[in-house]
Computed example of a mutant assay.
Amino acid sequence: MPNWAYIVLLVLAIYILLSLLLYILQDYFLFKPEKLPKEFQFYYENQETEEYNIETRDGAVINGLRFKAQNPKGVVFYLKGNSKSIKGWGKFAVDFTRHGYDVIMVDYRGFGKSTGRRTQKAIKRDMQVVYNKIKEKVPERYIILYGRSLGSGFAAKLASMNNPRMLILDAPYYSLSKVAKKFIPFMPLSLLIKFPMPTYKWLKYVNCPIHIIHGTDDRLIPYKTSVKLSKIKPRQTTLHTVIGGGHKDLNTFESYHKMLGEIITSHPKKVDLKGSSIDVGTSSKQMDVKA
């Protein structure tokens, strides 16, 4: 066998090995869970919480918290990112309870006190079970879905299958396959990735108002991703820009809190376009004006 053939076979073998490793180990790269013992007690200063557990049909347990507001106007179902547990993410609940909204947060399978084998299908099913539990006590017109980073995909999927008051996406991705391709463009990700999370596909079926919040300096998921997502359902989507915001620090910007407060405390109003310039065409030709 000629030398070039050995080289080709070696490269092919290495490529196949890398593909297998990516398929097997991707869960460890994508998820950074924090495990909590069953006896762990959640505590947040100036926040009233209630812990609960939901058992799924396959025997897994989904652990979550309800952050209580005084005389709640509704509920925010907050779907968190890919790291830690609700032990740390719970500090963000105050951004909603201070506006009079209860907040529901849960840990995905393998995070915190939650158990069960983690797959995209299983997590989507789990989130629908939690949403159904919320619906039993709160009409959907009072439910806000908020998805942060990884959670933005699951929130978009939930919104596409239900009728919440609104969907808020914080630093969302077009799809996780697209994010992964940015770092490993030479791998056949369409065949290997277990969590493709095609947010762009699910947004097509969302009928409620959509609000997208993104920082211009996000180096993990570029701002242009949200610009692209906002064009999927442009008539019902509003893009909110945090100038200078990164991927993990939007809560440190005053502008973020201002826009978030305006989003969740206001109701969409129909704009009267009669008499506006919406139907006025543009022309590159200059009209002659005689003195």
Rank of each mutant, 00 (worst) to 15 (best):
L203I: 06
I232G: 01
K228G: 01
I212K: 05
P209Q: 07
S230H: 07
P234M: 06
P222A: 09
V242C: 10
T216R: 09
I232R: 05
G245E: 10
H247C: 06
H214C: 11
D218V: 00
D217C: 08
G245C: 03
G245I: 01
L203E: 07
Y223S: 14
L239R: 00
I232W: 03
K233D: 00
L203Q: 04
Q236N: 14
W202I: 00
W202V: 00
D218R: 02
K224E: 15
Q236R: 10
S230G: 12
I243D: 14
H247Y: 09
L220F: 14
P209W: 00
K204R: 15
V242D: 02
P222S: 11
L203C: 09
T238H: 13
V206I: 09
P209T: 01
G215K: 07
T216E: 12
V227M: 15
P209A: 03
K233Y: 06
G245S: 08
S226C: 10
T225K: 06
L239K: 07
C208A: 14
T238V: 15
I221K: 06
P234H: 12
G244M: 08
T237M: 10
G246N: 13
T216P: 00
G246C: 04
Y205P: 00
G246L: 02
W202N: 02
K228H: 12
G244I: 04
S226P: 03
Y223Q: 07
L239C: 08
D218G: 07
P209M: 03
